[in-house]
Amino acid sequence: MFPRPIEKSSPAWRSGYQALLPLALIMWLLPLLAVAMFSIKPDADFTTGNYWTWPSYFAGFENYGTVFGTWTRTVDGCVGNLWPLVFNDDAFCLFGFGWDYDGSDMVRYMFNSIMITIPTVIGVVILSSMTGFALGVYKFKSNLWIFFMFVAGNFVPFQILMVPVRDLTLDLGLYNTKMGLVLFHIAFQTGFATLFMRNFIRALPFELIEAARVEGVAEWRIYWFVVLPLLKPALAAMAVLIFTFIWNDFFWAVVLTQGAESQPVTAGITSFNAQFRAAYHLMSAGSIVAALPPVAMFFLMQKHFIAGLTLGAVK
């Protein structure tokens, strides 16, 4: 059951394989292709029961247009905002420029997702490069136990953390804020990221660090000038992974937030779907919009993404 390399087989089998590939792919992605097709069908197709026919006309623009809502320029909505980038009930403001939006909150959920995901990735990169450095470079007694603590914590079911973390977030006054989610995500992902970083640092040539020590370079300078530059590919791989994990998080979004002011798109899409109940063309378009950023991230950073996911799959 280990297929021979295709170059060594007969030309007939080779072209057969080439033909089989797209067919297998279509079968594999069928549910997704169906949703993609739903999202460009007009409403009328569904009311007449033609779910699986070709779209009677291309309605992609109007469907996706509804998902994004209607936007009009506004001036007064953005007076007195302290931050350069603000998204509130009235408007989306970029410095003095403002837009009034209407129709659906989808864009706002997307904005929240971005404002949750990016700070989390930055926070995790900072913390885990430090913990990974400490556990990967130094030999001290409890090293392995602290490392195992991070690894074990990363595997626990979310539910065992739910009640206390929700309480803590409430006590900090961060319930239903993006900050509350960000802090938790940073803490939790640090477990996985430490595992990742520490193993990568372990594989670096230790002579580099020893040489720097002989030269009398301070330890923090070794971190900053020797190790960190070498970590770049690992940090990139980890950043894409964490981006995807956090963007796709649903459980914590439901536990720690409620409502359009702070909910990310995974949780928001359920409200969006409630708003457009049984409007399959709009729900499909909304789902595709929600799924797009990690997909784009994956295709842009494919090499890093796969390198990160499969770390350890080869010894």
Binding site: L127, S128, M130, T131, F133, A134, L135, V137, Y138, F140, N143, I146, M149, F150, G153, V156, I160, L161, M162, V163, P164, V165, L168, L183, F184, I186, A187, F188, T190, G191, T194, E219, W220, Y223
Partner: peptide, 27 residues
């Protein structure tokens, strides 16, 4: 050399302890 790892561990460890380790015991 003995102190540096602890200084580097501190922020990550604190975050992890507050949001992951203690909550397990609290649950």
């Amino acid at each position: 050399i003995a102190l540096t790892p602890w200084l580097f561990l501190l922020p990550g460890f604190l975050f992890f302890a507050v949001y992951v380790i203690f909550p397990i015991a609290q649950s």
